[in-house]
């Protein structure tokens, strides 16, 4: 038996704004610890990991581990119908994920479970020279600034500053932010702006974003709830100079 209840739909909704932009299908893995998913996009450019601990839910029951395969667009269509003060209940029957919104009315949606084409990828452990946190809004604004000039962004960090830079046909933009964190090395890599923008659709998950950057290494971007009961993490392959 699987049953999970949340006092509002916002964490699921904001997570799947990003997840449904990146992958077509996902497998939720549930056990007594909580609900997780790992997914790699078709182009193998972005990997994502969502971890929602059992303690995050108002009620959480999972007698035995389950694998719940769903189409992310179909799930997002249902989540978009939620109201921010609705209670959300997730459960399963034979062949369906059942999503119930309890507010003014009780609304029950079923999504057919699907066969997965691929087994979910296991997240790789990558050793980084840097890790630091910056405000989510600042990062999102920087990406929107860069969008004026280019489809790619150079992200770099040193002991003092985080920098985002882009150059285009008609000019360039340079953003600097004193991060105030303990970063001992310098690192810089270039990334697709479109791919970063997809991740930042999860704009209500966390007030801060933790970034790990290396030199021509993937970007790790992590959104964590203050309570540490939820994390949405992305890994993005860099663009490198030919």
């Amino acid at each position: 038996m699987f049953k999970a209840e949340l006092s509002n739909p916002n964490i699921l909704k904001t997570s799947f704004e990003a997840i449904s932009a990146i992958v077509d299908e996902i497998q939720f893995q549930t056990d007594s610890e909580g609900l997780r998913l790992d997914a790699l996009d078709r182009g193998h450019i972005t990997f994502l990991h969502l971890d929602l601990k059992a303690s995050l839910f108002d009620e959480y029951i999972c007698d035995e581990p389950e694998k719940i395969n769903i189409d992310t667009d179909e799930f997002m269509k249902v989540l978009k119908r939620s109201k921010s003060d609705d209670r959300v209940l997730l459960s399963l029957d034979e062949g369906n994920l059942i999503i119930t919104f309890e507010g003014q009315a009780k609304r029950t949606f079923k999504i057919r479970l699907i066969d997965m084409e691929y087994e979910p990828a296991t997240p790789p452990a990558i050793e980084y020279p840097t890790e630091f946190s910056i405000p989510f809004d600042l990062f999102k604004n920087s990406i929107n600034d860069i969008d004026i000039y280019s489809d790619k962004v150079s992200l770099s960090v040193d002991s003092e500053k985080f920098k985002a830079f882009a150059t285009g046909e008609f000019g360039e933009v340079n953003i600097e932010f004193i991060h105030g964190e303990s970063v001992k090395e310098e690192a810089s890599s270039v990334f697709s702006l479109e791919k970063i923008s997809e991740m930042l659709k999860a704009d209500k998950f966390s007030d801060n974003v933790t970034l790990s950057i290396g030199n021509d290494m993937p970007l790790t971007l992590s959104l964590k709830m203050i309570s540490e009961e939820g994390e949405l993490r992305f890994l993005l392959a860099p663009r490198i100079e030919n």
Partner: peptide
């Protein structure tokens, strides 16, 4: 010129 890389080398199994 820049080219988009993939994550394949990070997901290689031992």
């Amino acid at each position: 010129q820049y080219k988009q890389t993939t994550l394949d080398s990070y997901f290689k199994k031992d």
